[in-house]
């Protein structure tokens, strides 16, 4: 999966979780940019991404997911390792 493909798939995950088909992501997108991205939605995002990409984030990694770029990098690394 290329980085572009991960972005596309992750965008769909965000759109589903926030029920908003207009969401577009950039590496710098953070919780401040998306209405409803609170701590509960964050867990939902993590779990939805895990399901979509067939990976599990480690507990320690959860603390490093601050923006969309972090998400994509971690997903790419994990998928390469898988």
């Amino acid at each position: 999966m290329t980085e572009d493909e991960i972005y596309a798939a992750l965008t769909q995950v965000f759109r589903d979780v926030f029920d908003d088909d207009d969401i577009t992501l950039s590496p710098a997108t953070t919780a401040d940019d998306i209405a409803g991205w609170d701590s509960q939605a964050h867990v939902n995002l993590v779990v939805a991404a895990e399901t979509r990409f067939g990976i599990r984030f480690r507990t320690a990694e959860l603390e490093s997911l601050h923006n969309v770029g972090d998400f994509v990098q971690l997903i790419a690394t994990k998928r390469k390792g898988a």
């Binding site: 867990v43 939902n44 993590v46 779990v47 399901t51 984030f57 480690r58 507990t59 959860l62």
Partner: peptide
């Protein structure tokens, strides 16, 4: 799931 428990005190995962 211990990860969900430590992260958010969820006994039942959103899944």
């Amino acid at each position: 799931d211990p990860v969900r428990w430590h992260q958010a005190k969820q006994l039942v995962s959103p899944v």
